[in-house]
Design a binder for these strands. Sequence first.
DNA 1: GAAAACTGGTTTCATTTGTAACCATTGAAA
DNA 2: TTTCAATGGTTACAAATGAAACCAGTTTTC
Lengths: 160, 160
Amino acid sequence: MATVKMTTKREPSDEPEILELESFLPYRLYRLADAVSREFSRIYKDRHGLTRPEWRTLAGLGQNGTMTATALGEQSAMHKTKVSRAVAELERRRWLTRTPDEKDRRIEHLTLTGAGLAAYREMVPLAKAFEQELLARLSTDERTAITNGLGALKEALSKD
Amino acid sequence: MATVKMTTKREPSDEPEILELESFLPYRLYRLADAVSREFSRIYKDRHGLTRPEWRTLAGLGQNGTMTATALGEQSAMHKTKVSRAVAELERRRWLTRTPDEKDRRIEHLTLTGAGLAAYREMVPLAKAFEQELLARLSTDERTAITNGLGALKEALSKD
DNA sequence: GAAAACTGGTTTCATTTGTAACCATTGAAA
DNA sequence: TTTCAATGGTTACAAATGAAACCAGTTTTC
């Protein structure tokens, strides 16, 4: 009996599986978000020395007016401790004030002061400009692609 | 002379600018990446108690074989201190070994041990399954949208 | 109406991170 | 050669984070 071929061309399922990081969705997403966020953070970090939670708190209150801490956490997807600390710091700067709720004394309503509002108004155009500049480098198709893609992915993630 | 109307309908450029966080690209991107990453982290955190830098180091070495710490940092966009610490921990677990370079004694070549490789091989299918499951919830169009969108945005960001 | 469960928010502690200083080695300049 | 700048990598320190315990207050339940 003749010798048989002992090595065969590997089937795809045969070969040790390798994960290509560069094209792996969670990784691509994270890397990009990190890069964008880092760039963007200059706007609030360099100018006012804000942290991201502080910036988000400011942005939330600027956008919605008076809010409670829990609401802030929900809107901007921050852990309650982050919110708590951010609020404390903005209060220290006198950028916001707390008003205890009359009915439920656990709750505080947060509002930007004049100074807080001024800072917010100063930063909004910068934020918008940043986004515009980024989007301007994309074609129309690419812009809709990223917008829709992110939307769809968010949907996909939520129905779990 | 009759009284004149003192309040007029605000022009868009007139009204105090507001930033809608929900549709603001950096925010959308970050929130989504964070959610996906958090979900995904279960695969390496729950099972082996790895941190993200550790997982990325493992993934880098598993994918590319021997690498230097700097190369790892570049591939997976990690600061050198993160890499250093992740490598130290994986070495402690005996999942990788360091081999000093003969020519340049500053450099160490990192390679997974059998145990490291085993862990890698165990996690790769889980990672792929996670990604597949996520993508499976999208339509074909949505899949290409997110893929192309992220690619385009990455390009846009790099040419700065 | 007291005890138990829950909720809004803060604090404590351990872990993770980023920045900058640092060591050792190498390469370029003088 | 000696000196100086650059590079690979680690370490020390301060700041940011997350988990869990905590302290009011509030609602539910019995």
